[in-house]
Amino acid sequence: DESNKPILLPNESQSFERSVQLLDQIPSYDTHKIAVLYVGEGQSNSELAILSNEHGSYRYTEFLTGLGRLIELKDCQPDKVYLGGLDVCGEDGQFTYCWHDDIMQAVFHIATLMPTKDVDKHRCDKKRHLGNDFVSIVYNDSGEDFKLGTIKGQFNFVHVIVTPLDYECNLVSLQCRKDMEGLVDTSVAKIVSDRNLPFVARQMALHANMASQVHHSRSNPTDIYPSKWIARLRHIKRLRQRICEEAAYSNPSLPLVHPPSHSKAPAQTPAEPTPGYEVGQRKRLISSVEDFTE
């Protein structure tokens, strides 16, 4: 099969070098950035008060330690540790928490760990991170309901609301924008112990962030949302095809390698009803078989 044979790379090609550099910018793992907010007593309706908090309760602090690993920003190499735009020179604080497994990295933009500057009256330095995160974990210690939209931002799609209760338990629920209701189930609340709260809140936030990324990708319907490693695979396959075309153009005697095509017509299947918005969006999480067989 010609399409699977190794090909020689061009010795000097600026377009090839640019493509390789672009490939280096696509990590081999999925990345997520999640905002974390603490809401104190009497702050449920005040964005400024929430963003001005420099610490929270003892249970909130224990919750943070379970979310991930504490890292010092100045020691991080952005090409190895995903920071979601946090500055490593102290502009966004000294520490944050991050978490990773074999296929993804997540960083938490924690408002109480970011510096509260006197010259920044409206807390814009914090909002440029927190307001651009799709998902926020809100530790609501106010005793009042927290409403979506209290923290203004164009991309605040989903809130994971943590409400501490007695007996070391917590109520965990989801809020989302109306255009996200087909992807996020907000109907079920959970009672979770303090011990298990970081794991549950983190998983709910990661799932909500993946759904938000799919939702946000609708602005470019021709580019369905893939995982990062599938995006790398697609980029490599496009690069291979372009090299083959350039080689055939410079030397017409060489065969032009095309991806294999299936001449056999697909079997006719009964027509199915058109899937609704929710089903269609969830299918976009699934990769096409052509990603692996071309």
Rank of each mutant, 00 (worst) to 15 (best):
S253H: 14
H262D: 15
V257M: 12
G66M: 02
A49P: 02
K264N: 13
H55I: 07
V200W: 04
L73S: 15
P164V: 01
E144C: 09
R234E: 12
H235Q: 14
S28G: 13
R18A: 11
L22H: 12
A208E: 00
P255H: 06
I26C: 06
E62I: 03
A248K: 09
F95L: 03
K33I: 05
M210N: 01
S261Y: 09
V192L: 02
I286H: 09
P273V: 13
Y225T: 14
A211P: 01
S253A: 11
K283F: 09
E144L: 05
L73M: 09
E245G: 14
A35C: 04
G40Q: 02
L165N: 02
K33F: 14
L233W: 10
H258E: 15
Y277T: 13
Y58D: 03
L174D: 00
I34Q: 01
V257S: 07
P115I: 03
N170D: 02
S28C: 06
I243L: 11
S288D: 13
K74P: 09
E47H: 03
L37S: 01
D24N: 06
S193W: 01
K228L: 05
K33Y: 15
L83I: 07
Q203V: 09
D1S: 11
Q241Y: 07
N53S: 02
P252S: 11
H100D: 14
L23G: 07
I224T: 12
G153V: 03
P10H: 11
A35I: 02
V162W: 00
A208Y: 03
P273A: 14
N251P: 06
R59K: 01
K228F: 05
I71K: 08
K264Q: 14
D166Q: 07
R18W: 07
F157R: 06
L48F: 08
I7F: 08
S3T: 10
T61N: 13
Q25P: 05
Q43M: 02
V138E: 00
T186Q: 09
C89H: 08
I50W: 03
A49K: 10
Y277Q: 14
I50D: 02
G143W: 02
L254M: 11
H122Q: 12
A211S: 03
G276W: 05
M114I: 05
L67F: 01
Q154C: 14
V289S: 13
L48T: 14
H55P: 02
L233T: 14
V172T: 01
R128K: 11
P259V: 09
V20M: 13
N156F: 03
I26T: 09
Y60I: 00
L148K: 11
Q25E: 15
T274F: 11
V188E: 06
R202G: 08
G280F: 05
H159E: 15
R234I: 03
D141F: 00
F134R: 03
P10Q: 13
K74F: 04
K152C: 10
E294F: 05
C244M: 13
Y225L: 13
D79K: 06
E47W: 03
D1I: 14
N196H: 06
T116P: 05
L256V: 11
G153C: 10
F63G: 00
Y249L: 14
A205Q: 00
R240Q: 14
D194L: 00
T222Y: 06
M114D: 04
A231Y: 07
S187R: 09
I161H: 04
Y97R: 08
D125T: 10
G182H: 10
D185P: 07
Q213P: 01
D166M: 04
R238A: 14
V119D: 15
